[in-house]
């Protein structure tokens, strides 16, 4: 069962399974409890926060480091050959590809898409049990344990950013070692989605509090796993609620756009259009 060699890490390994179960329960619990108990920032300040992301499609190289980094950070299960054929692979951060034209006059748009964390989120409105909600920092959150798996939200989301767990997550025994202890795994029958790496935000906030200061732009700039991995620095994270933040500045760029803006969902993921070289 446990393949690690004799050694020091053994004591931790032997009760890993129970550790994960406890951790999962604990994290789910933390999600449910009033956030201010755990928060380090004053409530007033948190209310001001509006986390958002800017993705520069001109810098993006379509490499999918963000996609793999997200799966690694958030314990997203591998779907496997059979489930992939049924389009049941789970990608909190996905790469949308649109091609058009005919040889040799071709165009191809590659767009990394995480959850848009809409201010007016259609998924939240349809959830019959309140499993999904917009938290005080603007993150569209999901309580795994509360989800009943009705999949209204996956249908309602115009960006298809929600995924249903058609099967229980599974990993080869040895690969369970790589699971991130900060993120709970999700059981079969619930819907899961991008959290803007909420656990990382919480960590950064605790660190800032320990240092006796407020969260700064530099603390969160590449905070989510996708942004941190991006080799081209195309993904930036920050507070859209503060007009001086880098993301706010970029969101005012003439290249800025949001996906399906006319639906009135008010996404908090802002894209910067691709440009081409001009003389």
């Amino acid at each position: 069962m446990n393949d690690l060699r004799e050694g020091s890490s053994k004591p931790a390994e032997t009760h890993r399974r129970s550790f994960f179960t406890t951790l999962a329960a604990a994290l789910a619990g933390i999600f449910l409890l009033p956030r201010r108990l755990f928060s380090s920032e004053p409530a007033r300040e948190r209310l001001r926060r509006k986390w958002g992301m800017v993705i520069d499609l001109d810098k993006c190289t379509g490499c999918q480091a963000c996609v793999v980094a997200c799966r690694a950070e958030n314990n997203v299960p591998v779907a496997g050959p059979a489930q992939t054929q049924n389009d049941r692979g789970i990608f909190w951060m996905d790469m949308l590809e649109v091609s058009e034209g005919s040889y040799p006059d071709l165009q191809r748009q590659l767009t990394p898409i995480p959850c848009n964390h809409c201010e007016n989120a259609p998924c939240v409105k349809v959830c019959p049990v309140g499993a999904t909600f917009i938290n005080e920092e603007g993150i569209v959150a999901q309580v795994w344990a509360r989800c009943i798996g009705c999949r209204y939200c996956t249908t309602a989301c115009p960006y298809s950013r929600r995924y249903f767990n058609w099967q229980a997550p599974s990993w080869p025994e040895t690969m369970k070692n790589q699971l991130n202890p900060d993120v709970a795994t999700r059981p079969k029958g619930v819907v899961e989605k991008c959290t803007f790496c909420h656990h990382r935000i919480r960590r950064a906030r605790e660190k800032a509090r320990a240092e006796g200061r407020e969260l700064a732009d530099a603390d969160v700039r590449t905070l989510p796993a996708c942004a941190q991995a991006c080799p081209a620095e195309a993904i930036l994270f920050g507070d859209l609620g503060s007009p001086e933040s880098e993301v706010s500045r970029l969101a005012r760029s003439p290249r800025a756009m949001r996906l399906l803006e006319d639906l009135g969902t008010h996404p908090k993921v802002v894209y910067l259009r691709e440009a081409k070289w001009k003389e």
């Binding site: 490499c63 999918q64 480091a65 996609v67 793999v68 980094a69 690694a72 080869p172 025994e173 040895t174 690969m175 369970k176 070692n177 790589q178 590449t222 941190q228 991995a229 991006c230 080799p231 081209a232 620095e233």
Partner: peptide, 17 residues
């Protein structure tokens, strides 16, 4: 500071069954 998809997947090599 960046890292590509293959680099990210190094964990799966380490823990490959």
């Amino acid at each position: 500071g960046g890292l590509g998809p293959k680099g990210q997947a190094g964990l799966q090599l380490l823990y490959h069954p």
